[in-house]
């Protein structure tokens, strides 16, 4: 009961936040801008595919930065004191934050990519099935990247002493770590990379989250 309550509250807090409004409106607008600027030059690549690539990198980065800043800020302003003196588990706070941001950023990505698909469908002669097939693959990879980035955001948020240090760390570390599952299938020349990327994404995210929770449980406020 406590977990669902905290999760719902976090979801409410994030989807109403200015960053999330920017994402939900900004990412689809970005998809449109990509369409306008690349319609003559990016031959061979569908708008949906370009959009999903951009969205996954921006979405992942924003998710990690947002989580890191949020956790450090809440540590600094003693928000957790009021939660932790109530009969709840500490991990509820981190997992609910992770899920809330992950869901919100994923929805923003779906909106942006859907817009790309629609543009491709109405403006080009590519079949809808083909567009969806090509976009699905990159979208699944995007979900994996966003999950890992969010995990990095949580971990750095827990360990980082200040917002500046946290943001610098999350930009560098987040980018490197989240690209690991996407690179491995190509390095080892794996034929069906989606399943591998998904599995690797899940494993890396779980490790990052477990580490974050472990350190958060030991943390003294």
């Amino acid at each position: 009961m406590s977990f669902s309550l905290i999760f719902k509250d976090e979801l409410k807090g994030f989807y109403k936040s200015k960053v999330m409004i920017f994402l939900w409106i900004g990412l689809p607008v970005l998809a449109l801008l990509v369409h306008i600027s690349t319609s003559n030059s990016a031959e061979g690549m569908s708008i949906s595919l370009i959009t999903s690539l951009i969205v996954s990198s921006i979405g992942g980065l924003l998710a990690s930065v947002m989580l890191t800043v949020n956790i450090i800020n809440e540590k600094d302003t003693h928000v957790y004191d009021l939660f932790l003196i109530r009969p709840i588990k500490r991990w509820y706070l981190l997992v609910s934050k992770f899920l809330a941001v992950y869901i919100c950023v994923s929805i923003a990505c779906i909106l942006a990519i859907s817009l790309g698909v629609m543009i491709d469908y109405f403006e080009s002669e590519i079949f809808l099935n083909f567009i969806i097939e090509s976009v699905t693959e990159s979208f699944i990879m995007s979900l994996s990247v966003i999950a890992i980035s969010s995990g990095v955001g949580i971990l750095i948020g827990v360990i980082s002493p200040s917002i500046v240090v946290g943001v610098v760390l999350v930009i560098f570390v987040g980018n490197y770590v989240s690209s690991i599952p996407s690179i491995i299938p190509f390095v080892f020349d794996i034929e069906n990379p989606v399943a591998i990327v998904l599995a690797l994404g899940a494993i890396v995210t779980i490790i990052l989250m477990a580490l974050g929770i472990l350190l958060f449980n030991r943390k003294q406020f």
Binding site: D9, S17, T77, H78, V79, I85, P87
Partner: peptide
């Protein structure tokens, strides 16, 4: 024990969006 305790910290931190 937390069920019996009401606590107000020195710096009261509510999430500002609430």
């Amino acid at each position: 024990a937390h069920r019996f305790i009401g606590y107000m910290p020195q710096e009261v931190g509510f999430q500002k969006w609430r």
